[in-house]
C-alpha cells in the first residue's frame, strides 16, 4: 500500500516511451560509434599479440634448434679431432715400434753376420793352424829321420819342437 501510494509501481507510459526510444538510440549509436571500433581494436590487438607470441615461440624454437645444431657440430668436430690425435698417436707409436724392431733385427743380423764371420775366421785359422802343425810335425819328423840321432838328441829335438809349438 505504501509502495502504491508513493507511485513507485504506477505505470507511466510516457517514461516507458522515452526510455524505450532513447535506450534504443543509445544502443544504436554506441554499437556503431563506440563498441564496434573498441571491440575490433581489442580483437585486432589480441590477434597481433597472439601472432607475435607464436612468432617469438617459433623464433625461440629455431634459435634453440640452431644452438643444438651448433653444439652438436662442435662436439662432432671435437670428437673428430680427438680421433685424429689418437690415430696419429697410434700411428707414431706403430712407426716407432716398427723402427725399433727393424733396427733390432738389423743389429741382430749384423751380430749374426759378425759371429758367422768370426766362426769362419776361427775355422780357417784352426785349419791353417792344423796344416801348420801337420807341416811342422812332418818337418820335425823329417829332421829326426834325417839326422838320425841318439836318444838324447832326439829328445832334445822333440823338446825344441814342442817348445816351438807352444811359442806358436
Amino acid at each position: 500500500m505504501i509502495v502504491l501510494a508513493a507511485d513507485l509501481l504506477a505505470p507511466d507510459a510516457g517514461l516507458i516511451f522515452w526510455i524505450a526510444i532513447t535506450f534504443g538510440l543509445l544502443l544504436f549509436v554506441l554499437s556503431k560509434f563506440a563498441w564496434k571500433p573498441i571491440t575490433s581494436a581489442l580483437s585486432e590487438r589480441e590477434t597481433t599479440i597472439h601472432k607475435s607470441l607464436a612468432q617469438a615461440e617459433k623464433a625461440l624454437a629455431e634459435a634453440k634448434q640452431l644452438q643444438a645444431d651448433n653444439t652438436k657440430a662442435r662436439r662432432d668436430a671435437e670428437a673428430q679431432a680427438q680421433a685424429i690425435i689418437r690415430e696419429s698417436r697410434e700411428e707414431a707409436e706403430r712407426v716407432r715400434t716398427e723402427e725399433v724392431d727393424k733396427t733390432r733385427s738389423q743389429i741382430k743380423q749384423l751380430q749374426d753376420q759378425a759371429q758367422a764371420e768370426i766362426a769362419r775366421e776361427k775355422d780357417s785359422a784352426l785349419n791353417s793352424l792344423r796344416q801348420e802343425v801337420a807341416d811342422l810335425a812332418i818337418r820335425a819328423a823329417e829332421k829326426i829321420l834325417r839326422e838320425n840321432l841318439d836318444a838324447d838328441r832326439q829328445k832334445k829335438i822333440v823338446d825344441n819342437f814342442l817348445g816351438d809349438l807352444t811359442k806358436n
Binding site: T22, F23, L26, V29, L30, F33, A34, W35, K36, P37, I38, A41, L42
Partner: peptide
C-alpha cells in the same frame, strides 16, 4: 546515457 555516450565515444576515439 549522456555520460556513457561521452565516455565510450572518447574511448573509441583513442582506439581509432
Amino acid at each position: 546515457m549522456g555520460i556513457v555516450l561521452f565516455l565510450m565515444t572518447r574511448l573509441a576515439g583513442m582506439y581509432k
